[in-house]
């Protein structure tokens, strides 16, 4: 069961990376694409908790770091998405063991986008990456957050439903009374 879950999560992340780098960039809004990987990470975190969020964020971010056309120091997206995933998992644990409402999911996505973009840009600044432009940061964050919520409406229920199907019996009893 656990192998199946890990396999499914890996599959989701790989599909997300591929789609984000080669399909979604063609319908980018002012150059900003939908962070599909972040959305999948948040969905995994919301359905499985902060550990899963952190590890899935690390794996997904690492893929974003090394899959071409990435040309920045590896580890930056990994750090950003790991922390965003962990926080999303905490939100799920803190509120209740039950499912998070639609508004909660939307706020989680906005928060995750803000945190991950900020960490990614801040690490870039610390490493003296000349391409990080804080003047453009606000605009791009706004567009990205809006776009991500739109993407999340489609992706998060799908991922959470599939992950919910492979929950072990004892946990299902605990989570869904």
């Amino acid at each position: 069961m656990i192998a199946l879950r890990i396999g499914l999560a890996a599959l989701f992340l790989m599909v997300a990376v591929t789609v984000q780098t080669s399909v979604l960039t063609n319908i980018a809004v002012a150059g900003v694409t939908c962070d599909l990987v972040l959305i999948v990470v948040i969905a995994l975190a919301l359905s499985r908790g902060p550990e899963w969020g952190a590890i899935a964020g690390f794996a997904g971010g690492l893929l974003l770091d090394v899959v071409p056309p990435a040309d920045h120091t590896a580890g930056r997206w990994a750090l950003a998405l790991a922390i965003a995933g962990y926080m999303a998992g905490l939100i799920r644990r803190e509120t209740s063991t039950g499912p998070v409402g639609p508004l909660g999911v939307a706020l989680t996505v906005v928060l995750g986008t803000a945190v991950s973009l900020f960490i990614y840009s801040a690490t870039g600044s610390l490493l003296h990456d000349p391409s990080v432009d804080w003047g453009e940061f606000g605009v791009r964050l706004g567009i990205a957050a809006g776009y991500d919520v739109v993407g999340a409406i489609v992706v998060i229920p799908l991922v959470m439903w599939i992950m919910g199907r492979v929950v072990p019996a004892r946990e299902r009893r605990r989570v869904l009374p």
Partner: peptide
Amino acid sequence: VIGIGSAQSFNHTVT
């Protein structure tokens, strides 16, 4: 061109 960097990552690169 099979992949394009997004504006969030501040990379103007393509694969």
